[in-house]
Write a protein that binds this DNA or RNA. Sequence first.
RNA 1: GCGGGCGUGAUGGAAUGGUAGACAUAUCGGACUUAAAAUCCGAAGGCCUUGUGCCGUGUGGGUUCGAGUCCCACCGCCCGUACCA
Length: 926
Amino acid sequence: MAARSARPPPARSRTRSCRGPASCACRTAASSAQPPFPLLQRRVHPGVFSQRTAFMSRYSAAEIEQKWQQAWDKASVFTAKRDAAKPKYYVLEMFPYPSGRIHMGHVRNYTMGDVIARYKIATGHSVLHPMGWDAFGMPAENAAMAIGANPRDWTYQNIAVMRDQMKPLGLSIDWSREFATCDPEYYGQQQALFLDMLEAGLIYRKNAMVNWDPVDMTVLANEQVIDGKGWRSDAPVERRELTQWFFKISDMADELLAALDGLDDWPAKVKLMQANWIGKSRGLQFGFDLTAPAAGHERIEVYTTRPDTLMGASFVGISADHPLSKELEADNPELAAFNAQVRKTGTSEEAIEKAEKLGFDTGLRVRHPLNPDWELPVWVANFILMDYGTGAIFACPAHDQRDLDFCRKYDLPVIDTFLALDDPQPVTDEAFVPPKTEMVQWIDHFAGLDKATGDEAIDATIAFAEQAGWGKGVTKFRLRDWGLSRQRFWGAPIPVVHCDACGVVPEKKENLPVRLPDDPSFAKPGNPLDHHPTWRDCACPACGAQAKRETDTMDTFVDSSWYFARFTAPDADTPTRAEDADYWMNVDQYIGGIEHAILHLLYSRFFARAMHLTGHLPKKAIEPFDALFTQGMVTHEIYVTRDERDRPVYHLPEDIEWTESGAKLGATGEPVEVIPSAKMSKSKKNVVDPVNIIDAFGADTARWFVLSDSPPERDVEWTAAGAEAAHKFLSRVWRMARELADQRDAGLGEIDRTLQDLMDDYQLGVNPLDDELVRATHRAVDDVTKGIESFGFNAAIAKLYGFVNTIAKSQASARTRWTAMRTLAQLMSPMTPHLSEEIWAILGGPELVVRETWPVADPAMLQDDTVTLPIQINGKRRAEISVPQDMPKSEVEQQVLAVAAVQKALDGATPKKVIVVPGRIVNVVI
RNA sequence: GCGGGCGUGAUGGAAUGGUAGACAUAUCGGACUUAAAAUCCGAAGGCCUUGUGCCGUGUGGGUUCGAGUCCCACCGCCCGUACCA
């Protein structure tokens, strides 16, 4: 779901660059005489972090991480089990597309989920944290065409590589539940869902437009249409009509809209985007009578959301694909040519809306419904979609910018219907489009309005039209039915059969899965299922006669619309198993990219409802994701040089060298232009391979870094310096633990009580130096807990930096420092689980830290006795005052007024107002 | 085009409407060292008239005792736009 490149993984470079000072050893001695430190032996250039750092710190991530991953495996700590005694928690990250290699975006996404999962384990939950592969899709077919790979082999090889790359991250995933959507066991159950939904009336067939490449004779995806041309053939695409399968998602439009209100833990922006996408509108449907019948049509039905502007109608516009337009083409070669031109725009809304607005006057005339003497022209226009409303509109140029531009271009009349109250100017070049809540002055309104808002006018107009009998108030949705047919090979076959006698017949469930053939040929363009010699041939499930299989496969959005449900029982021989779905659903926390805000999430919401209707999910699961978090991307700056024709040539970060005069190409010394950060992409080569980072620094460093610098919902910029800093910090923590343990070995003695006991029984006032650290420990527990629970990972990490500095400087007793350090190990364990286990073990912690109960802060330890209040005079900070935490407002006010700076500012006068915000601030208004 | 979001020091960023710049990076200074690295300690938004001074959160307005935060407009960038995943 996340990645998209179809290219095979690039060969990894073995050279790395150094961004450190020019004196760094890696610059002067490429082949050092010193034997490299074992950790760095593999491929890492020493400049990434100094050999000596590693030597002196002795923090060996490679050793530590492997050791603890084996310990977790042995103890099966991440195997999800139904446990009636514990509350369950289902955390899910959007599963990846197996593009070939993991990237930093994956690391960030899965690390966030892992922090939540590990925290929930520590707080006593039975956690389900699964992983799978969104494995169908076009890249595998593109690879098949480009390099002759078999899509299935290509995909499973990629999965194997990516799984191997992911495991060293130490994620708390229950790998026993792993599946790929291209597994016949998975798509077979998806075919069963299809049959149930077909029977329930949730699926039907109708005609719809596709992008057709007339040279390659194949259907193109929108992204394969570049500037209106096919990406391989370069031929102008045509819109072509095909019979396709559809989910009736529009039947649920109102319900999907209303239910957004209940999604309290979803980002407001996502709910708003979905609401706008569903696009509920109330409007008027009515007809314009043609002055004379044409091509069997007597009137044109239009739908408008602004019926109140009917007196401003300038023309009636119809889509090029409107039945009337199509029928007129036969006798009107000019119109046919115009329509053919319109159909050369791709099917994407973006392409249609951005295209220059074009029109064609059909010569037909219609009568205005309010005045039979008023005739309006009928135009065909390229911006009117047959899919929305009735495929016909009336244009009101005075109050719609697009209509105005069109009318100015074709010299059509512009008639004002209302004017602004404060500036009643007629429209010239800019349409007057006030919010529908704004009061405006109406001009000669047929329903008798004078001053009214747009909303009031719309209501009045619909009532007027209904009473007069020429129109009807209608609620429409922008949301269209979900077309699931794809004319492609690498997808789940749609399990129906076409029989000459019986028509379209569903396959029998016992014949599922309808498997893809193992031997597709991509020699010819188009769908290999169409020209496979035998695959299509089958017996009709109804009459047994010779019949043909459907060759369309399912949209890959179908695969990703129910995988979360399948994870609850991946081995079930039905799509779901009731007791597992009941226990594990819903997903408590879903994490993924904002790019899925609309389609994937809306389709999943629809699917959950459809699965409930067909008996595959409980009622409570119709909103499958209780909480949603959308994380930002991982970016990196871009390095570019120019070729002899001034075209950009991109370079990998590891090929860049830094000198005082700027960035240079390591191999040639050619100066490199540095472009600000953008999303990591292979085409721009601004990618850092997580595998290299893990090899150099360890998984904990990579995890710590992607969580630390930026708030998780925002983009994070990967920098070599940041990664080094993260590693330095983890080394420091490791060293501190080691030193503390050495003190114990020197005679401090074992600490056998649990951490919580130590924290609970501490009495303040025993030793001021201990007090300070004990308070800091409780504050760290509180800060980090709140940080994790609110997805403030970067803030939690900042607090941990502060806590480590406090421990390092503390003069408290060894025993209190010991407690602080063990608490630190726990608090860091969701982010850096391997290092935390190691520290826990060094400091004599029992069992595994992953099995420890999360520490709880004592509220009493979080209170400070006195607080420093800043004093503002007229909103500007002028002084401060230190007062007891619980001092009453009135007393604070008295003390503030006595402060010299305040006295001076007042100069004998009485303040107008004194605002005391307890524990926060005081503002004196003069 | 339309819908949604984001914009804070040199850099990543912090800040329930309440001391803008926490924490980190880079930089500079000090300790340690024959030296360097590492490590440890410290400085640091800008400006000037060095004052419990002025300015400062993309730009311009507004609400408020008080705005990075809320509202409006504009600029720039990012995501989506129904067959990329």
